[in-house]
Write a protein that binds this DNA or RNA. Structure first.
Lengths: 202, 202
DNA sequence: CCGAACATGGACTAAAGAGTCCAGTTTGAT
DNA sequence: ATCAAACTGGACTCTTTAGTCCATGTTCGG
């Protein structure tokens, strides 16, 4: 999107800007991040910002996109195991661990951004929705694999089960963040595990 | 909190400011709401703002508090029924309806605020956490009432079940908002209902 | 190795923001 | 009725912010 640099130097600069913006916003929120902060962290000048991004709004949308990519990339390896009871348990454990790992539970970066972006900005919403869709697709595909392998009770709807799982995870992340208590995520993940187990044969 | 007006006129002015700020922030978010917008909607002057609220941060905290009160008050009547299978179903239906009622699902105002307030502002977080606690307490008390009436399977933990329910609702609200699809809330609420039903004796 | 496109630095503008100040008006207790 | 406290209006300052502009340096194809 936006203007694409033609030289390697330009590409590196653009990357540095986007990475800095994404980092700062994850830490301090959109309201707490000015273009000047981004400029300083990325070590670029004002004109570079505006050479690669037409305006702040566009940069924010790209940050949204890059945030989604970060969330998805960050769980790609464990999500790949989400197609057996043991793999599902490992996946959920890993998500819970993430909330315990830092000083305080940070919640889901996608959902957090959703609350910060201009409610009028439909384009931004679509970017975040796509992130959620990709996440849910990962869950659904694992469950479909199990269904195709005859591991699920007949009548189980992998698509619906994936949405239910994602809802539980998102809810757990919200509660963990608001209550500053990662155990809330633990409980939500356990509930999701039980829900899935109840659809597994044996 | 903050300076309390001594006259009826002063109280009315303070109320008007807080109401206007809460309204504007619910609609346009914190970033999209300046003190000048609040000033204009409340039809007060700058000095009134600063007479009743020492600074913006304090006003935002009171908005957080008033937003929680709004959410709780708004469901007080139906939440009161949350102590029988039928009442629980009515309650969940009502919550789902709320998401369908407006042009687009607005999610949970408390959770939305959580993503917008300064992540460093611990005091603000505590206000929102208290809102969640009060909400969950309502659910828990209904379940405890059922347990005490012998309507729940032995071993059922009302407190845990209330948290699970709230997590599902919050997750449903997040997904409904991000996907602009109230059906996501419907599914989450149905899942919560099934979860609770599975703990009810016949 | 030359010129055109690409990339950079940073000064500059204009607007919006939060917060201050004080002179004037209203209120209510005595 | 009076006077001090409470309340109001709005001009003012200071800072930060997004966004513009242009002169200079770098890169790369021909």
């Amino acid at each position: 999107m936006s203007s694409t640099p033609r030289t390697a130097r330009g590409r590196a600069t653009r990357e540095r800007i986007l990475k800095s913006a994404t980092e700062l916003i994850a830490e301090r929120g959109i309201a707490g991040t000015s273009l000047d902060h981004v400029r300083a962290l990325a070590e670029v000048s004002k004109s570079q910002l505006y050479l690669y991004f037409p305006d702040r709004e566009t940069l924010l949308r790209e940050v949204a996109s890059s945030t989604c990519d970060g969330v998805l990339d960050g769980q790609a390896d464990i999500l790949a195991d989400f197609h057996s009871p043991a793999g599902i348990e490992r996946y959920l454990d890993a998500l819970v661990e993430l909330q315990f790992d830092f000083e305080r539970p940070s919640g889901c970066p996608i959902a957090t951004l959703a609350g910060q972006l201009d409610p009028q900005d439909e384009q931004a919403r679509l970017i975040l929705a796509d992130g959620m869709d990709r996440w849910e697709a990962g869950l659904r595909e694992g469950l479909e694999q199990m269904r195709d392998g005859g591991e699920l009770k007949p009548g189980t709807n992998p698509s619906k089960l994936a949405t239910q799982t994602l809802a539980l995870l998102q809810g757990g992340l919200v509660l963990a963040r608001v209550r500053d208590d990662a155990a809330q995520m633990r409980l939500a993940a356990d509930t999701a595990l039980a829900l899935i187990r109840s659809a597994v044969l044996e």
